[in-house]
């Protein structure tokens, strides 16, 4: 948008100052119309629900509604913090997300760098399509596939292992194995899709830089390390900050689809509790309070990461 303004009306700063805001509206109304829908979406689905947060401070009864329910201050939060599962849920949420970050975050970058080096166009697009596919599968389906592949008695992989004369591995039915499977399946599902943004960033790298590097005698690996990575560093940092904000969140579906009653050590997380309290037992106040807690910590993490990134000389997010 910025570019189009300057293109269409170079040096119009003085003029626009004169006519004020209305002028922008008149001149670029098409752009505002385009922006209207996304803005509406954000307002309706991201901002309007904030009013519902009030039920975290109320003894919310569905039939009485938001206005009719009684204010109870922070007592809901006290109750939530005192629950048996609360501490475990916070711990598990952090653990699962940190593991996801450690193993899941670098993968798209590595993959994007590798894809960038593939010169055969057809091979590249086939590989890319195959990598994107898992992103479009719902977790319920992935969970179903996961169990038919990895369950102890009837999973295909375990049948193969048993036929090879080894004892089956409880990929999903033992706590530690479950954790490993959870992370790996997650990485598999998301890494392909994650490459898109990096590939886009790589496309933006000035080709003169590569030429210069080649002149200086850099091979493919050196070009990658000293040209590509530094050029997409700001993208990486931005995404890292955004991902840090998700440390307290996480996908409910992913756990729900992969969990079973045998391996429960790591499956109680904040989103799972929100579901159990809010949807299963209709305790909307508690679920909202927990969700609010999660968001506040997430916000703190983003702001903290942004601050550190700026101190380290990066662009930051905000």
């Amino acid at each position: 948008m910025k570019r189009s303004e300057t293109q269409r009306n170079p040096g119009s700063l003085n003029q626009s100052k004169k006519n004020g805001i209305l002028r922008y509206l008149q001149r670029d109304w098409q752009l505002y119309v385009l922006m209207f829908l996304p803005m509406l979406f954000i307002l309706v689905f991201k901002f309007l629900p904030y009013s519902g947060l009030s039920i975290a401070f109320k003894d919310y009864k569905v039939a009485k509604g938001y206005a009719g329910s009684e204010w109870v201050g922070f007592s809901i939060f006290q109750k939530v913090f005192g629950k048996r599962d609360f501490g475990q849920a916070v711990g598990n949420t952090l653990l699962l997300n940190v593991l996801d970050l450690v193993f899941g975050f670098p993968m798209p970058i590595i993959l994007a760098l590798i894809l960038n080096e593939i010169k055969n166009r057809y091979f590249k697009s086939v590989v890319q399509t195959l990598l994107y596919l898992p992103h479009f599968l719902s977790w319920v389906i992935i969970g179903g596939i996961g169990y038919s592949l990895f369950s102890v008695s009837s999973g295909v992989v375990n049948v193969l292992i048993q036929n090879a004369g080894n004892s089956p591995i409880p990929f999903l039915q033992d706590n530690t194995w479950w954790l490993i499977s959870y992370v790996l399946i997650g990485v598999w599902q998301s890494m392909g899709w994650g490459t898109i943004i990096y590939l886009a960033a790589i496309t933006g790298v000035n080709s003169e830089l590569y030429e210069a590097a080649r002149v200086d005698g850099a091979g493919r690996l050196k070009q990658c390390l000293h040209v590509t990575i530094p050029c997409i560093r700001s993208t990486i940092v931005t995404l890292l900050i955004m991902n840090l904000g998700k440390l307290m969140g996480g996908s409910f579906e992913r756990i729900y689809a992969l969990a079973n009653a045998k391996a429960t050590e790591y499956t109680t997380t904040i989103p799972v509790l929100v579901y159990r309290w809010g949807i299963e037992s209709g305790k909307f106040s508690e679920a909202t309070a927990l969700g609010l807690f999660q968001s506040v910590i997430g916000l703190a993490l983003v702001i903290g990461a942004d601050y550190i990134a700026k101190r380290l000389g990066e662009d930051g997010l905000i």
Partner: peptide, 22 residues
Amino acid sequence: KGKVWKRAAAFGLASVMAAGVL
């Protein structure tokens, strides 16, 4: 600084529009 203000104004406008409808 002027640019930032411009951006802010544009954002404000869009919000006002959306909010109006809402």
